[in-house]
Design a protein around this nucleic acid. Structure first.
Length: 565
RNA sequence: GGCGGUGUAGCUCAGUCGGUAGAGCAGCGGCUUCAUAAGCCGCGCGUCGCCGGUUCAAGUCCGGCCACCGCUACCA
């Protein structure tokens, strides 16, 4: 029996996340996890903040707050977004706060070094004598040697857009104090990716059935990889372990190296909190584990080449990724999401005026699974109004309100013979019924969302055919039986809905008069005659209310106008 | 420059191993009235970006071209 270790890309704690992140790496993972859980699979869902690196130190310094405080603030803000959208991890930590993280990252470094996969090289870098530190690219200002622009950043000129080499920069100066830096040699460690590729990773990648966009993205990158630096001169990060540092000081692991190790260290933290400190090994060092990384396309190289190389290189029986369902990019109304340029949808503001569960559904239905895609407000409106409110929501209210008015708010009786007759109609003549979980397991969330709506339509077709509002006048018992079947179908729908819209699913469950959690009964199999109904005749229905609020044209137009396009 | 992606009905997109082009939305017509004026049924010959090639047969493989976009910076 396999167990599923699911991760979502560790969000970089340097700013808010937006819908693109949510639909790219977090929401699909949450749906996947919820679905597998209901199907009885053993699943662990791991995530947390990626909290080192110079982008963070520079921004924290500009704000004049300690690094730890800066990342803590963003870690909290990002987690708040996940909470609002019902994305639930089994463990949520951060690379700068997880007690296990530094030691585990150092252990990776140590093992890779001992196994001969690291090389040391000395290079010239710019050093600020006043601040007594080597300057990372982003800490260097200077005159662009290509166009003469006077305040080019160390690695890129904002004027001519060219990439720059810091050492060639004219009139360079330290971004912190303005002092002219000097060149000094510095020693760094490099990961020998070519060796790891030739030993195992190349063949492993080639043999694996990846999503087409993953295979395409990696392309011939494997043939070009070589040494990749894994240390930097700075203070914010995991220190190079003393026993391997050879007297070198002030070196930390490069942020890209320690970040994915967070998946491991966060699992260790989770295990300790469970009171079973060795339990993490069962997840990471077992052949039965299926490791699934949900990421965006910019992270494909890391999760399909570099991190697997690290996992393999330590030679500790770590499992390598089983699937990497990478998504493409998600745009906003035809343009990129850009927080700095206000081309975004502020999460808190959105949640105050719209339904986050409806957004969950739309984000999944429009996810960039095979190509870049867009949040379009008009599409969101159509999705909410037509699919959610009219097809699903209205199905629930039309049936339950009818029962409230004419059947004392109870689930009517339906004898076996009548049930068999109606089941034949419902299951074979009212449209294509499908199991959304089949698509979820294939990482086809758009199709899964479509199938969910299609399954609701089946009941609309059924009730239209049998027309209980007419039938009731001549044969109220038979009309009641039609509605009883509909109630059972709605219960089934609620269970299928859980991974997509957990709150709505629970609401429907309770409107049917059920108690407890809707997911408690597990995942429903595709219904087959005589074996799918769950409600007892005479069950008292709960309070019926509308599930989805519709969006009017003016509201949508206002949102589009706010984007200024 | 290099790498990659996309180009299929008005719109958004599916099209697995090559074998007579599909869905949803919008639009048009009809039925129905239980329901958030909701529901159901019917209606789609579109040069599958362009040119050429392979093949009995190509949206689906190969070559070239055009258009738009992204990446080449640890920001999904």
């Amino acid at each position: 029996m396999p167990r599923y270790l699911v991760t979502s890309a560790l969000p970089y704690c340097n700013g808010p996340i937006h819908f693109g992140h949510v639909t790219g790496a977090y929401l699909p993972a949450d749906v996947y996890v919820r679905t597998l859980r209901m199907q009885g699979e053993e699943v662990l869902y791991v995530c947390g903040g990626d909290e080192h690196g110079t982008a963070i130190t520079i921004n924290a310094e500009q704000e004049g707050v300690p690094y730890s405080e800066y990342v803590s603030r963003w870690r909290t803000a990002i987690k708040d977004t996940f909470d609002r959208f019902g994305i639930r991890f089994d463990v949520w930590s951060g690379t700068s706060i997880c007690p296990e993280h530094a030691a585990t990252s150092q252990e990776f470094f140590r093992r890779l070094d001992q196994n001969g996969y690291l090389q040391k090289q000395s290079t010239e870098q710019l050093y600020c004598p006043k601040d007594k530190m080597f300057l990372a690219d982003r800490y260097i200002l200077g005159t662009c040697y290509l166009c003469g622009h006077e305040s080019a950043r160390g690695n890129e000129c904002p004027n001519c857009g060219q990439e720059l080499e810091p050492l060639k920069m004219k009139v360079a100066r330290c971004k912190i104090c303005g002092t002219t830096p000097e060149k000094r040699p510095t020693l760094h460690w490099y990961l020998d990716l070519a060796q790891l590729r030739d030993e195992h990773i190349g063949a492993w990648f080639a043999d694996h059935p990846w999503k087409p966009n993953v295979t395409g993205f990696i392309g011939n990158q494997l043939s070009q990889i070589g040494l990749r630096p894994i240390t930097r001169d700075m203070s914010w990060g995991v220190p190079v372990p003393e026993d391997r540092a050879g007297g070198e000081r002030g070196k930390v692991l490069y942020v890209w190296f320690d970040a994915p190790i967070g998946y491991v260290s966060f699992t260790q933290e989770w295990a300790r909190l469970q009171g079973k400190p060795d339990e993490w090994k069962r997840w990471w060092q077992s052949e039965d584990t299926r490791l699934v990384h949900f990421i965006g396309k910019d992270n494909i190289s890391f999760h399909c080449v570099i991190f697997p190389s690290m996992l393999f290189g330590v030679k500790q029986q770590y499992v390598l990724p089983w699937q990497v369902p990478a998504n493409e990019f998600y745009n906003l109304q035809g343009g990129k999401f850009s927080t700095s340029e206000k081309r975004t949808i502020p999460i808190e503001d959105f949640c105050a005026r719209f339904d986050p569960e409806a957004a969950r559904f739309y984000l999944l239905a429009s996810a960039p699974e095979t190509a870049d895609s867009d949040w379009r407000w008009e599409d969101f409106q159509a999705c909410v109004n037509a699919s959610l409110a009219d097809k699903i929501g209205n199905l629930v209210t039309r049936i339950l309100r009818f029962l409230d008015k004419n059947y004392e708010g109870q689930v009517p009786a339906c004898d076996d013979a009548t049930a068999a007759e109606f089941e034949r109609v419902l299951l074979s003549e009212c449209g294509p019924i499908g199991d959304p979980a089949v698509f979820v397991r294939e990482f086809k969330f758009r199709r899964a969302a479509e199938q969910l709506v299609a399954n609701a339509v089946v009941a609309n077709v059924f009730v239209d055919r049998l027309a209980p509002w007419t039938l009731r006048k001549t044969d109220p018992a038979r009309a009641g039986a039609v509605l009883a079947i509909c109630c059972d179908w709605i219960a089934l729908l609620a269970r299928w809905m859980v991974p997509f819209m957990p709150g709505k699913a629970q609401a429907i469950w309770e409107m049917l008069g059920n108690t407890g959690r809707v997911e408690a009964g597990g995942w429903p199999e595709l219904p087959c005659a005589g074996r799918w109904r769950s409600l007892a005749a005479g069950q008292k229905l709960g309070t019926v209310s509308g599930l989805f609020a519709k969006l009017d044209d003016a509201t949508v137009a206002a949102e589009v106008a706010r984007l200024g396009t």
